[in-house]
Design a protein around this nucleic acid. Sequence first.
DNA 1: GTGAAAGCGCTAACAT
DNA 2: ATGTTAGCGCTTTCAC
Lengths: 338, 338
Amino acid sequence: MTIARERPTLEAVARRAGVSRATVSRVVNGSTTVAGPIQEAVRQAVRELGYVPNLAARSLVTQRTDSIALILPESATRVFSDDQFFPGIVRGVSQELEAADKQLVLIMAGSAASYDRVERYTTGRHVDGVMFASMHGVDPLPGTLARIGIPVVCSGRPMGRSTPPVPYVDVDSVGGAANAVRHLLDAGRQRIATIAGPQDMVAGVDRLAGYRSELKGSRRRSIVANGDFTRESGAVAMRQLLDDDPALDAVFVASDLMAHGALRTLREAGRRVPDDVAVVGFDDVEIARYTDPPLTTVRQPIIEIGREMVRQLLRIAQGEEVEEALILPTELVIRQSA
Amino acid sequence: MTIARERPTLEAVARRAGVSRATVSRVVNGSTTVAGPIQEAVRQAVRELGYVPNLAARSLVTQRTDSIALILPESATRVFSDDQFFPGIVRGVSQELEAADKQLVLIMAGSAASYDRVERYTTGRHVDGVMFASMHGVDPLPGTLARIGIPVVCSGRPMGRSTPPVPYVDVDSVGGAANAVRHLLDAGRQRIATIAGPQDMVAGVDRLAGYRSELKGSRRRSIVANGDFTRESGAVAMRQLLDDDPALDAVFVASDLMAHGALRTLREAGRRVPDDVAVVGFDDVEIARYTDPPLTTVRQPIIEIGREMVRQLLRIAQGEEVEEALILPTELVIRQSA
DNA sequence: GTGAAAGCGCTAACAT
DNA sequence: ATGTTAGCGCTTTCAC
C-alpha cells in the first residue's frame, strides 16, 4: 500500500494558488463569480496536489451528503435469491436516483446486530434520505427517522402506527387479490383455496384480506395455507391444501414464486392445471411466463414502486408535503393456468 | 412529514444535564470513566431530547466512518441476474464485515455518470475502505484511491499497472482452466474447443490463457469462441464452435452459466453429452448440479474471496503491509458431462 | 471578484 | 472524574 501522505486540504490548495480558502471553495464548487485566470491557477493547484474535498467536512456545514439509502431488512442470501422483487425495486430506485444525481447506497440488514448498525448509520445522517423495502412486522426505525426529520419513504404500508405517519408507496394488493378471486368465481370454480404470504409482511396480509373479502360475498368457505413467498414454501403449502380439501378446484397463490412451487406439487399429485385445479399467482415475475402452464397472475408495477419512492423522497427532502399513501394499480394477466 | 425541529447537539444535552460537552461525549461513546449518577443524568437528557450524534462531525475529527463500500461496476439488472458470482461475493463480504461491526454499503455503477459519482463518493472519504468486484478493462479508480491513502482491495487481478499496486484477492483461474483442459486431454479428447469469457475482464482473459497453455503442449490446435458470461452468450458461442469445427469432441466453457447455454445448443444440434462432446464449466454454481447431465466444472471459493477481501482491507486499514496478491485455489469437480 | 472570519458538531489532549 | 480548549476541513455571510 501507499504511504498515506498527508491529505491536502483547501488551505493547502489556497496557499499554493496564492488565494484564499473561500476562493478555492468557490472554484471547486463551480461558482461562476471567480475570474478566469484565478480559476485556472486554482485548478492547477488542485491537480498538482491531488486535492479531493473532504465530504464529512462539507456535509457538516451544508447538512447534505447527496446520497440516499435503500434499506432491505433481509439477508444477502434472500436479497439475491430468485425473488424478483428486490431487483425490481433496486432498478426503479437506481433509475430515478440517477436522474437526480444522487448516490444510492444499498444496505442489507438481515440480523438484529446489523439492524442496529443501520439505525446508527441512518439516524447519524450519513444519508439525506432513507427508503425501506420488504419490511417485516412492526418496525420502529422509519418512524424514528421521520421524527428526527430525516426524509423516509417505505415500500408497502408500514404495520403499526407512528407519529408522524411515514409516507409509503404501495400497490393495491387487496384489490388485486380480490380481482384474482373474482376471476376464479366467474369461471365457476367452487372450492377456491389460497396460499397466503407471510403474515408479518403487509403484502402477505393484504393479499389474504383481498381473498377473504371477495370470497365472503359468495357462500364459499376459505381454505388457507401459509407460505413465506419462497418457491419451496409454495410447494409445501399446496400439499397441505390438498390434504385439507382434496376436492379443491382453484387456488389463489400470493406470489408467483410460491405458485411455481404449487404447480410442481399439483403435477406430482396428478392434478391437471387448469382443468382440475385453476391457479392464479401474484407479481407477474418473468418466470410466470415460463411455467407449465404459463401462470395467470396479478401484475404489480414493481419498478414503478421504486421510482415513486424516490420521487416522494425527493419531494419530502425539498420540504414539500406529500400524501401519506401513494397506491399504484394492479392488473390481472390471464394466461393458461386459470 | 414531521416538522424538522432543530436537532439537539451535544451542547444541548450538556446544558440540560448540567455537565460539559466532553462528559456527554464520553457517555455517548461508552467511556467508563464517568461517575454513575452523572452517566444516568446524561442518558436521561439524551433520551428527553432525542439526541443522535452527527456522524459527519464525528468522522471529521476521528477520520473514520466505520463503513466500507463494495463497488460493483455493473447495472442493477446484471447484479441481480442469475449469475451467482455477485451474491457469493456479497455474502462473503457481509459475513466478515458483520464480525468487524462495520457497515457495508453496496454501490452499483453501470453507467459512466454513476461511476463519476462513485469516484466522488469514495475519494471524498464517505467510507473507510473500498472493495471492487467484477471490474471491466483498465480502471483507474482503485489506483487513485490507493494513492490518496484510502484502503482498497480488488477481487481479481486489476488490468493494467498502477503505482502503488492495488492489492487483490483472486483465484487461480489459469491453473483451474489448465486442469480442466488436462482432464479432457487425459480422457482422450482430440478436438478441444473453448468458450471464452469477456476479454475485458481478467477472469475471462486468465481462463482463456489457462486453456491455451495446457493445449500448447499437446499438438492440438485451439478453437475459440467468445461469450460474456451470460447463459445466452454461451448458447450462441456453442453454435459458432459447431460451425467452425463440426468434429469437436470437447469444450471448456469459462463459466457454468455459459456452459448451461452451450448444453442447450448441443442438445439442439443432436450431440450427446458427454458421449459426443465433453463439456467442462467453471464456477461450480448451484445450477451446475441440476443441468442435464450435471456439469463437470472448476470450483472456485467465491464466498471466500469476499471474506478475504474484507480481511485484507481491515489489515490495510490498520496500517499493516499486505501481499499484493492473495490467490485462492480452484478444484476440478468431476460430474457426468466430461 | 476576493478575502477574513465565524462556525457546522464533534473528539481528544491537556488541565484540574 | 470532569471541564476547558483547540481544532477536524469545509462553506458562507459579510466586508472590502
